[in-house]
Nucleic acid binder design. Structure first.
Lengths: 342, 342
DNA sequence: AACAATTTCGCAAACGTTTGCAGCGAATTT
DNA sequence: AAATTCGCTGCAAACGTTTGCGAAATTGTT
């Protein structure tokens, strides 16, 4: 045995990875015995187990995930495709899914598409090549063809769409309550007896924008005490800034922002003009909670929690893996978080 | 052939993944021929190639990455371990590394440790089990034992430490210019003839804090026109807020923030007190560029670019893979970006 | 027509694991 | 003493690829 050990010590610079075979040769046992010993199989005696585990540790054995996946065809790996990880909401979502995955013995392959449908497809291929067990995906705004994603279902790979979901029906989706959260924000404004609201919304051809705009408008307009509502669209923080500057002449008493990005643009103008919040102008937004806390007073917001959405997406995934063929379209509830801005 | 095709079409619900073997049986060719045809090997005739590629496409063939990695023992996969992805700087770093990786045919396994050394070790194991080709790692503040990371080098797996790097010498590191960037900020302050500076620094036992504090102090103090310097430490945004409030009585004319987190805390107090920047108080920070753009006027900052650091880390990685055994400790240059806050 | 050269392809081993099955020695039962 | 059990371990196939080598089929050369 000592001889064997020396031999392997010498060749360690060439064969740099410990394998079951290597351990088996040193110990004079078969590969299968080593494999079973390491996973505490009842067939193997305690003496043997101890010897094996000990050597495995000193040799710093790490099982080869590729071999295991190949053999068992169960990768215990989820794919997660997102337009960008540089985003508070997605950050929270990812952290949440990752935590759950880790706790349940899965790992996570995070891929970002940079809003490029081509990269998105590349990422999808990568997921398939790595034989993922399931996929979480938030499609980019420019993605028109979701066929490739649906194809995974034929391969028995569950797909959970989150946040930006396709408009078709036969797929699992988890979303924030787009309409409801806008309604809640509108109600908060109404309750505060505001008179003139500037609502800044996002890219007008996104589904999320349409939903929020419609719900917001309806809620504001259904009130008897007529509130004047000005709406406009901004696709970026800078555009939101311009819109704020343009509409400030009309003296709104309240600003509603559909997203963090828009809030940030709007708040730059608030600072620039030296406006007091909420005395000169009230502000309310829809957010995961990161951006509103940047300001003083903290901005009142309707929370759409990436963290909660992650939990929901994960449990939906587990349900699919558990054999549920029930297609679900889930929504997390929203919550009004009071800052001092309204 | 038609018979074969039907057979496979029927069993498609069971055997849900196309393999080389499947294609070979349908086409009546050997597995090796299929393999070669798909990678455009010169041994295979154009006719055959065409037939193979065509069928592979209709059958939606995707190579099994696990099998390939097992066979070739070249995973073309980098690991990236970071305390948290919820961070502008790391976001930029990751995006940069990911882009380069994709362009060079590598994929990236992103893992976050949540500043927990135990999860960090778990993540490291995951990387090893997946037989990564190389590792980018930013150690968490509480990590004391970097042995496990260094062990990778014995396995011929390059390790590039970035941002938070260990203090030992025999490892590859890429960093932002901690001392230099603090010096640049200090010089900018001196040039503006400021008289009384409040410097808010991070967690005092982090190397980065020590370096920045020392450089900042030295630069401020070496000037003949004595500048009064107050320094304090904050480990979070909220602490920075408290410190600001506490020291505001001493009427500093300038605030220096060591990081985004601290800037955000400080700026909340600026907003709270209705201070005009830069008239009432000047502000300068060190940042990747995200946070300074949240405010009006935009905050003047010394840029430490996550994007550039990513590029540097990647090229350092490629150098290692290219066979360079030269241990390098690289630093990206900083850059003063003028906002209107100083 | 015979031979060489070239094109085209298949065989089989290997990568590192898991796992059903069988083997074997010893202890217990009949 | 033979048969049965039980505890421990090994054999061998399989997962899906890649690739060196050899063989067959085709072409070109005399």
């Amino acid at each position: 045995m000592c001889k064997f050990f020396l031999t392997y010590a010498n060749t360690s610079s060439y064969m740099n990875n410990t394998t079951l075979k290597k351990i088996s040769e040193i110990l004079g046992l078969s590969i299968s015995t080593i494999s079973r010993a390491l996973k505490n199989h009842p067939d193997i005696s305690d003496k043997t187990k101890q010897r094996v585990v000990e050597l495995a540790e000193t040799l710093d054995y790490e099982p080869n995930a590729n071999a295991i996946n190949l053999r068992t065809s169960n990768s215990k790996l989820f794919g997660l495709i997102v337009p960008s990880i540089s985003n508070w909401f997605y950050n929270a979502f990812i952290a949440s899914v990752e935590e759950e995955s880790r706790k349940n013995g899965y790992s996570l392959m995070i891929l970002q598409s940079g809003d490029d449908p081509l990269i998105e497809i590349t990422n999808l291929k990568l997921c398939r090549q790595n034989r993922i067990t399931g996929l979480f995906v938030c499609i980019s705004p420019d993605t028109t063809n979701i066929e490739p994603f649906l194809k995974l279902k034929e391969l028995d790979i569950p797909v959970i769409f989150f946040d930006k979901v396709p408009e078709i029906n036969n797929c699992n989706k988890v979303c924030v309550a787009d309409s409801l959260s806008a309604t809640m924000a509108a109600n908060a404004i109404v309750n505060k007896k505001k008179k003139k609201v500037l609502g800044i919304f996002g890219n007008p051809h996104l589904l999320i924008t349409k939903k929020r705009l419609e719900a917001f408008q309806n809620t504001i307009n259904e009130k008897v005490n007529k509130i004047k509502l000005i709406t406009d669209h901004a696709s970026s923080s800078v555009e939101a800034e311009e819109i704020m500057l343009r509409h400030l002449k009309e003296k709104p008493d309240t600003i509603f922002c559909m997203s963090d990005e828009i809030l940030i643009g709007a708040m730059k103008v608030v600072q620039q003009k030296g406006l007091k919040v909420p005395q000169d102008i009230a502000v309310i937004t829809i957010s995961n909670g990161g951006a509103p806390k940047l300001y003083y007073p903290e901005i009142t917001y309707v929370e759409t929690s990436g963290h909660k959405l992650g939990k929901l997406a994960f449990s939906s995934m587990m349900a699919c893996l558990g054999g549920s063929t029930f297609i679900q379209e889930l929504t997390i509830e929203s919550l009004l978080v009071e800052g001092g801005s309204l």
